[in-house]
Simulated assay, not measured.
Amino acid sequence: MIKLKHLFIMIGVSSMLAACLFSCSGCSSGSDELKCRVVEVEGGYGYLVFCGNDTLIYQPYIPAVRGRKPFSTKEDALNTGKLVCKKLFDGEPPTLSKEEVNRLLPNR
């Protein structure tokens, strides 16, 4: 049985993804383009994805893994963010599977 707290988290994440996909539909045209930037967070690094000047995604932790663990290097955060940008640009959901994360971060 799903705990109520987990249900609210899943609904929130789904809503954010839907909003991101909706708001990002025009990012690949004109002056709006997708960009990724590494940010320093407590204990390591995360990434931001921008469409023009708007922040679409703030990801302070490694996605698709249990717990809240930041990236250990700037390069790992940037490479992961670039994959998310590529997915958005290609019209795919910005979610990453555990397998994709393991390919990007084999020494995690």
Rank of each mutant, 00 (worst) to 15 (best):
residue 82 K to W: 09
residue 4 L to Y: 11
residue 32 D to A: 13
residue 46 G to T: 10
residue 107 N to W: 03
residue 96 L to D: 10
residue 107 N to Y: 05
residue 52 G to K: 13
residue 25 S to V: 14
residue 73 T to F: 14
residue 83 L to K: 06
residue 32 D to E: 12
residue 57 I to G: 01
residue 66 R to C: 04
residue 93 P to W: 06
residue 90 D to Q: 06
residue 25 S to K: 15
residue 95 T to H: 09
residue 19 A to C: 12
residue 6 H to G: 07
residue 78 L to A: 06
residue 29 S to A: 07
residue 93 P to Q: 07
residue 91 G to L: 06
residue 56 L to D: 00
residue 85 C to Q: 11
residue 14 S to D: 03
residue 20 C to F: 01
residue 50 F to T: 08
residue 8 F to A: 12
residue 5 K to G: 00
residue 1 M to G: 15
residue 81 G to W: 08
residue 67 G to I: 09
residue 44 G to H: 06
residue 5 K to N: 07
residue 5 K to E: 12
residue 60 P to W: 09
residue 40 E to L: 06
residue 28 S to T: 13
residue 79 N to P: 01
residue 86 K to A: 12
residue 25 S to W: 12
residue 16 M to Q: 14
residue 98 K to I: 02
residue 37 R to I: 01
residue 23 S to N: 14
residue 97 S to V: 02
residue 50 F to S: 03
residue 47 Y to K: 05
residue 24 C to Y: 00
residue 66 R to L: 14
residue 64 A to M: 04
residue 45 Y to I: 08
residue 13 V to M: 09
residue 49 V to G: 01
residue 64 A to T: 05
residue 80 T to K: 01
residue 20 C to E: 04
residue 70 P to W: 11
residue 76 D to H: 14
residue 33 E to A: 11
residue 30 G to T: 00
residue 96 L to G: 07
residue 47 Y to R: 05
residue 75 E to G: 04
residue 68 R to C: 12
residue 68 R to I: 06
residue 12 G to I: 03
residue 51 C to K: 06
residue 58 Y to S: 07
residue 95 T to G: 15
residue 70 P to H: 04
residue 75 E to N: 10
residue 67 G to E: 08
residue 70 P to Q: 03
residue 89 F to W: 10
residue 36 C to G: 10
residue 92 E to M: 12
residue 88 L to S: 00
residue 20 C to V: 15
residue 70 P to D: 05
residue 54 D to Q: 11
residue 93 P to M: 04
residue 12 G to W: 01
residue 102 N to G: 11
residue 107 N to A: 11
residue 2 I to E: 09
residue 81 G to D: 05
residue 59 Q to D: 05
residue 35 K to W: 03
residue 1 M to W: 12
residue 48 L to R: 14
residue 69 K to Q: 11
residue 94 P to K: 04
residue 20 C to L: 02
residue 32 D to N: 13
residue 14 S to E: 03
residue 16 M to N: 12
residue 60 P to M: 02
residue 4 L to V: 08
residue 75 E to Y: 09
residue 73 T to G: 10
residue 50 F to A: 09
residue 55 T to P: 03
residue 7 L to W: 12
residue 55 T to H: 05
residue 8 F to G: 07
